[in-house]
């Protein structure tokens, strides 16, 4: 069986590091893997999504509605946007940080209220955390991505050390400590 992870966020949030680390870890463990990214126009402050699929043999590189086992969302509205891509028995891990998109800034649209409650009403297992705050505690607001990876790692069934080793060999040397701390803080997040 193929395990499907959808990583959603806002262009510039560093979603690609999470998929890069996943790619490295799963490939090293002998899985077939495909990671699909979108570059170019949608990078700049737009909604961005990365698909990670791994298993014995992976054909398609994309994930469609109702197919993801896990949704990792870097921003709250993006969790609402992409939740339909999740299987009914999938899990959502979402940052509670809110970033207003341009239609909301200009007053053409409203940022929905009580997103978490409304997502939970669907019955989907949902883990929420203030990843920005935890990233700050780790020492850098830019480590939001690794905080979220830390939360996800707990559900991906591999030893914690596997991820920590991947972080050590992937991120720039001077950010290793911050990222390991960020990972640990994410890993310790409890289900609410």
């Amino acid at each position: 069986m193929t395990y499907n992870i959808l990583i959603a966020g806002v262009g510039g949030q560093g979603t690609l590091l999470a998929s890069k680390l996943m790619g490295k870890v799963f490939l090293e463990r002998g899985y077939d893997i495909k990671v699909s990214e979108v570059h170019g126009m949608s990078q700049r402050g737009g909604s961005v999504v990365t698909y990670v699929r791994y298993g014995e043999k992976v054909d398609s590189a994309v994930i469609d509605k109702g197919e993801a086992d896990m949704l990792i969302s870097f921003e709250l509205l993006e969790a609402a946007r992409w939740m339909s891509y999740l299987k009914p028995d999938g899990v959502i891990i979402t940052n509670t940080q809110k970033m207003n998109p341009m239609p909301v800034i200009t007053g053409q649209a409203k940022y929905p209220e009580d997103i978490i409650t409304k997502i939970k009403q669907s019955g989907i297992k949902t883990i929420t955390l203030d990843a920005l705050k935890l990233a700050g505690e780790a020492g850098s607001a830019r480590s939001v991505n690794v905080v979220l990876l830390g939360v996800a790692a707990k559900y991906l069934g591999l030893d914690r050390s596997v991820w920590e080793d991947a972080i050590k060999t992937t991120v720039p040397a001077k950010t290793v400590d911050v990222n390991l701390k960020a990972f640990g803080l994410g890993y310790s997040v409890k289900e609410d």
């Binding site: 990078q43 700049r44 946007r81 299987k87 940022y111």
Partner: peptide, 19 residues
């Protein structure tokens, strides 16, 4: 057709913008 749960409200778009 796949089964899925959609968010119950309309979701504002997030188009790319000038930085």
């Amino acid at each position: 057709v796949n089964e899925y749960h959609a968010f119950p409200e309309e979701i504002p778009g997030r188009p790319p913008v000038l930085c």
